[in-house]
């Protein structure tokens, strides 16, 4: 381990109220520590700049998955393993389980949480594009109260979010409106397991015969944040699903996404494969 451990402090609060008070009373001093699957890697590498953390792991208020008539509410500390096992999520929100299944190894899935994944705000996070197409909402809590914000728009830039320093994500709410939508996801990470995405897609569409009634497209690893491909969606909505439409959408997407070169891949590869993934999705819609 490359970190000097005595420099670090991890506080385990008795309840969520105590956690919120810490965040409120000493703003910026304390940061949330969820499953630790990102933070522990930084610690090991000696790259964890922040020193004082408050653990959310054992707070029951942040756990559990509940389904009401209109929503499924997922506590922020719900792990990837729990997401994969939940019946309503599997039936109505399969893209989330598919992403969870491809995140890290099983040990990581047992420890990594959906809330931690959102707050960590990696553009390569596998489950975030799914949340984008499901039009999730986030319930944020602080010592002063709570608010609900749409997940789309939550990420404001590379590793920055709308969340204040005194806030926590309590839960993720998914509207139960996926009936009649076709859903699709794919992760491209060169190897089949333990990979970090070079590009990944979550997509859903509602067809009326051969016409695209509605469509949502989200990508990871092609921008500083996970993104919705809004312009491409517009180019597809209300159009007949044929090869001309597919080619138009492909061109629009290549125009819309501006990925970069980095240690894992190239901008050219990400653009072209993102476009190929779109074509693959649209072709599958065509075949059903």
């Amino acid at each position: 381990m490359r970190a000097f451990l005595p420099d670090y402090e991890l506080k385990i609060p008795a309840n969520v109220g105590e956690a919120l008070r810490l965040l409120n009373d000493e703003p910026g001093i304390w940061r949330p520590f969820a499953g630790g699957t990102d933070l522990m890697v930084l610690l090991e590498a000696g790259k964890l700049a922040h020193k004082r953390f408050v653990s959310l792991w054992s707070l029951p208020e942040l756990r559990g998955i509940e389904a009401s008539d209109s929503h499924v509410t997922i506590g922020a500390m719900t792990t990837y393993s729990q997401i994969q096992r939940h019946d309503v999520l599997r039936a109505e929100f399969p893209l989330l389980g598919e992403a969870a299944n491809l995140t890290g190894a099983i040990a990581i899935q047992n420890r990594g949480t959906i809330g931690g994944n959102i707050a960590n705000a990696s553009p390569a996070a596998d489950s975030l594009p799914a949340l984008m197409v499901y039009e999730a909402e986030l319930e944020l809590i602080s010592a002063g109260g709570s608010r609900v914000v749409p997940y789309v728009g939550f990420h404001t830039g590379y590793k920055t979010t709308l969340m204040r320093e005194d806030e926590l994500i309590r839960a993720i709410r998914l509207p139960r409106l996926t009936a009649g939508w076709r859903q699709h996801s794919r992760k491209v990470g060169t190897r089949k397991a333990q990979a970090i995405s070079k590009v990944c897609i979550a997509a859903m569409a509602k067809l009326d015969g051969v016409t695209i009634n509605d469509i949502r497209l989200a990508y990871g690893s092609v921008a500083p944040t996970p993104v919705r491909a809004w312009k491409t969606e517009v180019a597809l909505k209300g159009r007949k699903l044929d090869s001309a439409t597919i080619q138009t959408a492909r061109a629009e997407l290549l125009n819309e996404l501006k990925p970069i070169d980095d240690i894992r891949s190239t901008a050219d590869y990400r653009s072209r494969v993102a476009a190929n993934l779109l074509v693959e999705f649209l072709n599958r819609l065509n075949q059903l």
Partner: peptide, 16 residues
């Protein structure tokens, strides 16, 4: 070598 970690230096897994 800048990808000197096993997350970025991709060796095949048993699944590959």
């Amino acid at each position: 070598m800048v990808n000197n970690q096993m997350t970025n230096y991709i060796m095949p897994t048993s699944a590959d």
